[in-house]
Design a protein around this nucleic acid. Sequence first.
DNA 1: TTGAAAGCGCTAACAC
DNA 2: GTGTTAGCGCTTTCAA
Lengths: 331, 331
Amino acid sequence: MAATIKDIAKKTGLGLATISSYLNGGNVREKNRIKIEEAIEELHFEVNEVARGLKTNKTKIIGIIIPELNNIFCAEIITEVEDQLRSQGYATMICDCRTDERREEEAVEFLLHRRVDGLIIMPSGRQGKYLNRFTKAGKPVVVIDRKLDGVDCDSVLVDNEGAARDAVGRLLKAGHRKIGMIAGPKDIYTAQERYRGYCLALKEAGIEPEARFAAWGDYTIEGGASAMKELVTRNSDMTAIFVSNYEMTMGAIIEINELGIRIPDELSFIGFDNVEFAKASIPKLSIVTQPTEEIARHVAALMLKRLEESGDTDGHQAVKLKTSFVEGKSV
Amino acid sequence: MAATIKDIAKKTGLGLATISSYLNGGNVREKNRIKIEEAIEELHFEVNEVARGLKTNKTKIIGIIIPELNNIFCAEIITEVEDQLRSQGYATMICDCRTDERREEEAVEFLLHRRVDGLIIMPSGRQGKYLNRFTKAGKPVVVIDRKLDGVDCDSVLVDNEGAARDAVGRLLKAGHRKIGMIAGPKDIYTAQERYRGYCLALKEAGIEPEARFAAWGDYTIEGGASAMKELVTRNSDMTAIFVSNYEMTMGAIIEINELGIRIPDELSFIGFDNVEFAKASIPKLSIVTQPTEEIARHVAALMLKRLEESGDTDGHQAVKLKTSFVEGKSV
DNA sequence: TTGAAAGCGCTAACAC
DNA sequence: GTGTTAGCGCTTTCAA
């Protein structure tokens, strides 16, 4: 099979240490360097990262656990994170857990066995105890988009409350008073925050949030559609709606389409994420967008930094990023 | 750090081979089994897959190379493939190459060093020589959605020509004669096939395809939008259009929206992939959809099969799957 | 069934 | 600078 450094040593007549030194950027006599390079070329030698990993106790692999790869928000972040990490020589091992906490724990186990050097996770639940197996092993954990109870790690968050507050504020400014919201699952951190922002904006305008105006979806297209239907059926007086994630935005639009409701004449609409979809809708949707690339860069940078430090657990960081608002014609 | 089988051996007073045998499902005396299990429990022992990989020369990792993770067609397939493989104990290492052939070669190199057991790839180019380093090492390669020149591997394809032919046939049946097509990059296999299907349908209806009715996009949203603009500007007599991938479908719709063209009154439209988007559009779009889940299952099954065979290169397979058509109100 | 021992390919002391 | 050597944690003969 593949050549090893032993073969190179034999071929060049040099010792193992010299080859290893060359491979790791050490100093090697010019003459030998050439010999080594020739031998590598000739034998098609390639470092065996597995053996290296065993020896150094570093795999140069980062585990990534996400609720759903097939979700544009996740995909955008992961794409960028993977890119950043790979450019630094780190491979990524992605586990899609289908928003299932049990699978998530299994994935942690799985990655632990694989001896990944660090873990990046966008958790489904709130509890993070099972992550402590990582932190205890001195391996860095970076959490995306959620706050986790009981784990010692860095996190990169988005100002969800502010985003929702701002969006609902815009509806209020446009004169709306009966504003509905399609919220996410009650047990998900971002969903809670966005709902809080919605309530906050209403209260600031002197309006008491009414339960009938809130529907709790599940961050899926189907959930968005049925929540939309529920709200419309229940509240004939509702004049505007704020939908709090991309999948549900799409679902809501599908349902609105289905019901023949006209935007913005009969209902004003503010959605979430995915500029392209917003532009493709008729009329163009006004939406809140999250800075996925920025999130990804922060995540990768944090991970890389922790990896370098190797052990110095100086206080963990929690970065919080701002969302943007893209104006359409749906309000 | 983590416990090793040596620790277990010491603790139980047994030999290494016994522990290893237990770990790999071998026969161990009941009494010893219990002792081992207790020790494992107590010491929090976990198999080190890296060491195992070095010894067995199998990493139980499958490399996946794709043009763009942030592309729903890819994401859907990868999600399912990853799921299937993980359920069989295989981890996946995903490399997103941003549709860049140079990056793709780098990724192959990268994964080769990592000693992945197999490779699943959706290539950007047509040439696959650089994949031979895998096949020569006796490692299975499965290609998705493209036909590659000069590589010995399995592939899972979609009947693109038939799909396009069918779609255009529907437009013809609806009475259209001046039908435009937004095709993909000329050097991509699927794009060529879809274009061929378009031409075929026209010819079958006695119409000679005209160059002015074809715009060559690049499978991106922006590309779809500008191709749309180009076609509309160039052909005032065009009454229908067929767009040949999801991103361009979205781009085309954005542009149509921008230009204020009404569907289907002024222009009939058939798009590609992503049922949800099609449903969310006004009017609902008629689209061709690819069986992503089925593709993924075939890919995973083929890979797993090859992995088991370990070396018997009995003739390689090329599975070809059918697309579906989802009727909307855009024709 | 179990134990001893060798070795997978590499790195890292250490001595020269 | 370079060679020698020991081992990372595991599997796998081979004997017992």
